[in-house]
């Protein structure tokens, strides 16, 4: 059982975001949401999607957004009950793994 490579992670993340209807049910669920969209689940998902697909934004910006998630899964529960079940909290976790993996590859670490 080897962990997925970068491309696999990219596909998994963007596929999950593709399934998202942008209903924003998750936004109100997010404990970190205080008004800025990137403080919410949907905002984080869209940011990582834009980064992977179009190279928008920077890794530092993504890091600040993604690591502000508490991984409490309240959004995921809401998504499962009322929306498309795109597993938003797990996708944010995958996005963190993506950032780590990219940095490790740059540093030439064997994985």
């Amino acid at each position: 059982m080897s962990s997925p490579g970068l491309e696999e992670l990219e596909k998994e993340i963007t596929d999950n975001v593709q399934r998202c209807w942008k209903c924003r049910m998750c936004v109100a669920m997010c404990p970190t949401y205080e008004g800025w969209f990137t403080q919410s689940t949907a905002g984080r998902l869209m940011a990582i999607n834009l980064y992977i697909k179009h190279g928008l934004g920077s890794e530092e910006e993504l890091s600040t957004m993604l690591y502000a998630c508490t991984t409490c899964r309240r959004c995921q529960e809401r998504c499962r009950m009322l929306s498309t079940d795109c597993r938003p909290a797990d996708t944010i976790l995958k996005a963190r793994q993506y950032l780590v993996k990219r940095a490790e590859l740059r540093e030439g670490r064997e994985s």
Binding site: P31, T32, E34, Y67, A68, T70, C72, R74
Partner: peptide, 27 residues
């Protein structure tokens, strides 16, 4: 229950201490 609000403790404290405290106060 399963909709319980997060208290903001744990790992978030190590990276975003101020945000963590605001979440804690809200909870």
């Amino acid at each position: 229950g399963k909709w319980s609000t997060c208290c903001g403790g744990g790992g978030l404290e190590a990276t975003h201490p101020e945000l963590s405290e605001r979440i804690g106060v809200r909870r």
